[in-house]
Design a protein around this nucleic acid. Structure first.
Ligand code: SF4
Ligand code: SF4
Lengths: 157, 157
DNA sequence: GGATATGGCACTAAAATGATGCTGTTTCCG
DNA sequence: CGGAAACAGCATCATTTTAGTGCCATATCC
């Protein structure tokens, strides 16, 4: 349905929260409590981000997580890839080639164009840093694009 | 999982096929046969596109579908909206406000930035016409944008 | 050594999607 | 006229994906 998973949402919330308190080690309990979300589920997301190297963990009684990198260095694409994989858009693009998947592939009329769309989306995420997610000036639609340091659509616009 | 549904894929295949044979009335049977996909499922997608006004149908023994508009006039966003709805990305953006959904909403740190991402994706689809899907010269981003007029989907949300 | 944290899976429940069934209506054509 | 072929509109079932928990191990502080 062209939607982020909850895991991704939780991970993003956690990342933003951790970015706000950079340097500190913050526990899952605290973050989940702040936003009233499932402690366990948030924990799973942060675990995944930790495995992906975006976070560093500290165990033990005063344990928790902290950012492994500066917010400017983390691309949204990396986050999403860690939490729900790269977007595929069509079934023939999935990692495990799924040869059994699609009979159309040899002469599929939409494969290539859709890949272009996907690349555009991916590029947009690559060019959006965690920093950009943080200092969000509540931009409204219609206003000139608030995204300065990234040019999403080189065509027209 | 950030992926188009099969219904959308089928619909797109049908549209591209119909665009190739503009003016003619082509049956679901023929299209499904060409690409070896489920006749029924393709039928459902084309029905939906017909209800959305993108196709015109002709019943009866030599019936089928044909484009209701020129390929230049129909935006990918319109197609996707007809087949799987507008992308929401997060659960708080779904149409039926789902008040019960998210406790975070009042002070959600990621809501607004994610909406920006969604708008960018949507805009990309708005600016991609069916025509652009057809004559796919493996264009790289930077190509001239094909669609100027007709925004069939004045989004409120 | 106990309390509190993360680490890593496996597992169940719920939701979305994929696919099909069924009945009706329209149109052609013999 | 009457049947075949095609779309129209739902309803229904099966499959896949996602959301959410369970369980136990390990690490750290006190
Ligand atoms: S080959 Fe075409 S129809 Fe098959 S999965 Fe890829 S995009 Fe879809
Ligand atoms: S308010 Fe924030 S956490 Fe809640 S659904 Fe929207 S984006 Fe996700």
């Amino acid at each position: 349905m062209l939607q982020f998973t909850k895991s991704t949402e939780y991970g993003l919330i956690g990342l933003v929260h951790l970015a706000d308190r950079r340097g500190e080690v913050v526990s899952v309990r605290e973050i989940a409590g702040t936003y009233k979300i499932s402690r366990r589920h948030l924990g799973e997301s942060l675990k995944a981000l930790c495995r992906a190297g975006l976070l560093k963990s500290q165990r033990g009684v005063h344990g928790g997580y902290r950012l492994a990198l500066e917010p400017e260095q983390v691309a949204l694409s990396t986050i999403v890839a860690a939490l729900e994989g790269e977007p595929a858009l069509t079934s023939c693009e999935t990692d495990h080639a799924e040869s059994a998947g699609c009979h159309v592939e040899p002469h599929c009329p939409i494969r290539s164009p859709i890949q272009r769309i996907r690349q555009g989306l991916w590029r947009q995420m690559e060019q959006t840093s965690l920093r950009a997610l943080i200092d969000e000036p509540l931009a409204l639609p219609g206003a000139p694009s608030p995204i300065e340091h990234l040019n999403l659509f080189p065509r027209g616009n």
